[in-house]
Structures are given as structure tokens and as C-alpha cells.
């Protein structure tokens, strides 16, 4: 079994800092971790982590979410599993990646890994409380997409943001995804990171639901799905 944990969030949301702290906690707990990043320009930060902790980092990129990344991503997971055998793969997708698309792409890797099954940890989306008003103006649709598909919305940078902005972040997130669990913290000060690590260790998120997809198609077209 390979567990995949997605930590999503828009550019500047503090993903990389949060990820570094999260990985430190998980490594201390004995996990063997690989990281897959999808953020051009931030790879150097992750390379430093590799050197510090003996982790494995791989990068994916590309413009076309459904085709380009799917192939590279699945292959990257399979190669990591064969060569490094992590028990947890943390994925830092681009701010324009769609979480369910990455879930499906991750599950494709099962074809290349004999007998291994992909399990998803809760999808964590970081929301930058400091810049919430800017985000919901400039890239609202992209941020909405990532919140809509999150299991956990982590309101980040609460140590620097005003209460008004934190409240705005919560209200915005709940208006889009009332079912998501809301957590608060700051990657920079290691606040809330252990709680997210607990969730990643203990809980799972549903797989990309092919059965449901087939049912929907059957309802629409009738007959055999």
C-alpha cells in the first residue's frame, strides 16, 4: 500500500514552508517519505530537504493537467515505489492542478506496481489568510476549485493575519465546501502541523470513484454502463 497525501494551495500560500515542517514531523515519526512537487522554481527548496533528511524528491510539471501530468505523475509514483519504497508520498501540486485529477492519475500507477494499492490521505488545501482578499479577487475560480475538493482546509499564516482576515477565510471556505474540516495554523511557526500530520497518518480520503462515474453514465444513457 502506498499512501498519497496532497497538500494543495495557490502560489504564495506557504505550501513549501508548511510541507517542510510537515515532513520533519512525519520523518520523526518513522515514515519513509517521498515528495512530488509540481511547482516550477521551488524545487531547490525541496532538494535541500532531500539532503537534510535523505528523502526522495521528484518533480512533475506541464500545462495540460489531464494528459501530460497524468502520465508523468503515475510513472513517477511507480518509479519511486520500485526504487525508494516510501510508505507515504506527499504531493505538492501546482495551484492550477485539480485534486481529483491527481487522485485518478495516482491510481493509474497501480498498473505499473505489482500488487500495490494507492490509498489517499485527506486532501489538504492551504488558504493564505494574509492574502485572502487578493486571492478571492484575482484567482477566485482556481482557489474555489481547490477548496471545493479539499477534505481539510488549513487556514495558514494565522500568526500574522488579522482576525478579520481569518474570519473571511473561514467564511469563504465554508461557503464553497461546507463539509471540509477547517484547521488553523502557521507552517512558519510549526503551528497546527502536528495535527495535519495526525490526519495524514490516520485518515483516508475516497479514491477517484470510477464506480460512481459509471453509475452516472448509466443514469444518463441507460442500459449497460
Amino acid at each position: 500500500m502506498v499512501k498519497i497525501a496532497q497538500v494543495a494551495g495557490f502560489l504564495g500560500s506557504g505550501k513549501t514552508t508548511f510541507l517542510i515542517e510537515l515532513v520533519k514531523v512525519l520523518v520523526d515519526r518513522g515514515h519513509k517519505i517521498a515528495i512530488i512537487v509540481n511547482d516550477v522554481g521551488e524545487i531547490n527548496v525541496d532538494v535541500r530537504i532531500v539532503e537534510m533528511y535523505g528523502l526522495k524528491a521528484k518533480e512533475i510539471s506541464g500545462g495540460c493537467i489531464c494528459c501530460q501530468i497524468a502520465g508523468n505523475f503515475a510513472n513517477t509514483i511507480a518509479v519511486l515505489q520500485k526504487t525508494f519504497k516510501p510508505d507515504l508520498i506527499i504531493v505538492e501540486p501546482s495551484g492550477v492542478a485539480i485534486p481529483w485529477g491527481l487522485k485518478r492519475a495516482a491510481e493509474y500507477s497501480e498498473e505499473e506496481m505489482e500488487g500495490e494499492m494507492i490509498v489517499h490521505a485527506p486532501v489538504v488545501t492551504l488558504v493564505d489568510a494574509l492574502r485572502i482578499d487578493e486571492l478571492i479577487t484575482s484567482v477566485r475560480r482556481l482557489v474555489e476549485t481547490q477548496i471545493r475538493e479539499a477534505d481539510v482546509v488549513f487556514i495558514n499564516k494565522v500568526d500574522s493575519a488579522t482576525q478579520e482576515k481569518i474570519d473571511m477565510s473561514v467564511k469563504f471556505s465554508k461557503s464553497i465546501n461546507p463539509n471540509a474540516e477547517i484547521m488553523f495554523g502557521s507552517g512558519r511557526n510549526n503551528q497546527g502541523v502536528r495535527e495535519v500530520a495526525d490526519l495524514i497518518e490516520k485518515r483516508t480520503s475516497p479514491r477517484y470513484d470510477e464506480t460512481y462515474e459509471k453509475e452516472m453514465l448509466k443514469r444518463e444513457y441507460g442500459g449497460k454502463a
Binding site: L11, D39, G63, S94, G95, V96, S138, V139
Partner: peptide, 19 residues
């Protein structure tokens, strides 16, 4: 727009569309 997001990264372009 696709070429631009490839040449500057999508997240940056989407922010710069506003800023």
C-alpha cells in the same frame, strides 16, 4: 495564453492577470 503560462508558470500568470 497557454504559451504564456508555459513560459512564465500558470500560477504567476493568473496572479499577474490581476496585479
Amino acid at each position: 495564453l497557454l504559451s504564456l503560462t508555459q513560459a512564465a508558470s500558470a500560477e504567476k500568470v493568473f496572479m499577474d492577470m490581476y496585479n
